[in-house]
Amino acid sequence: MSLLSSAPAVLVLEDGRTFRGRAYGATGRTVGEVVFTTGMTGYQETLTDPSFQRQIVVQTAPHIGNTGVNDEDDESDGYWIAGYVVRDPSRRVSNWRATEGLEERLTRRGIVGISGIDTRALTRHIRDRGAMRAGIFSGDEAGLDAQTQLAAVRESAPMAGSRLVDEVSTTQPYTIPAVGPQRFRVLAYDLGIKSATPEQLAARGMEVTVVPASTPFERILELAPDGVFFSNGPGDPATSDHEVEVLRSVLRARIPFFGICFGNQLLGRALGFDTFKLTFGHRGANQPVLDVETGRVEITSQNHGFAVAAPLGEPVTAPQAEFGRVQVSHIGLNDQVVEGLRCLDTPAFSVQFHPESAAGPHDSRGLFDRFADMMTDSPASARA
Rank of each mutant, 00 (worst) to 15 (best):
L122E: 00
S76I: 04
L201S: 00
I111S: 09
I260G: 01
Q352N: 01
D241M: 09
A121H: 04
A321Y: 04
R22V: 03
R92F: 14
A321D: 13
A196L: 10
A358M: 11
I331M: 05
G113Y: 02
D73I: 09
A310V: 07
T37A: 13
D77F: 12
S214G: 11
T37R: 11
D88M: 12
R20E: 15
Q53N: 13
Q59P: 00
L290T: 04
T376A: 15
I64K: 05
E356Y: 00
A238F: 06
K277C: 05
G192E: 06
G135D: 01
I331P: 06
L290S: 00
A270P: 05
G295R: 02
Y43M: 08
D274I: 03
V338G: 02
R108F: 07
V297Q: 08
A202V: 03
S115F: 04
E72Y: 13
K194S: 12
Y189A: 08
K277V: 08
P379L: 09
D49S: 09
A160E: 15
P181K: 14
D15F: 03
V86Y: 07
Y79L: 15
L47H: 11
G284D: 04
S378N: 13
E167F: 13
S195T: 14
S249G: 13
I176W: 07
L266P: 06
C343Q: 06
G130W: 01
A188N: 00
T18M: 03
Y174I: 07
Y24F: 15
G295H: 02
D291H: 10
P177T: 11
E33Y: 02
G268K: 03
D145W: 06
T37C: 11
A188M: 14
D88C: 09
P8K: 00
R129V: 11
A196F: 10
I111W: 08
R185N: 14
Q265G: 01
Q55P: 02
V153T: 00
T41R: 15
A7L: 12
T209F: 09
T376I: 14
A178N: 01
T376D: 15
M1D: 14
S156P: 02
T376F: 11
A178F: 03
T27S: 13
P234G: 08
S240Y: 12
G161K: 02
P288F: 05
Y79D: 13
D73K: 12
S378L: 05
L221V: 14
V246R: 11
N303T: 12
D77I: 04
H354D: 02
V12L: 01
V10T: 10
L102D: 10
S94T: 13
A213R: 05
V168W: 09
Q55D: 00
D377R: 15
D345E: 12
G110D: 05
D73E: 13
E314L: 11
R219Q: 15
E141A: 15
I64D: 09
E33F: 01
L201W: 03
V351D: 05
L102W: 10
G68T: 08
R127C: 05
G116H: 02
L4C: 08
I81C: 15
G65A: 09
I220C: 10
V179E: 14
R109V: 07
R133E: 03
F280Y: 15
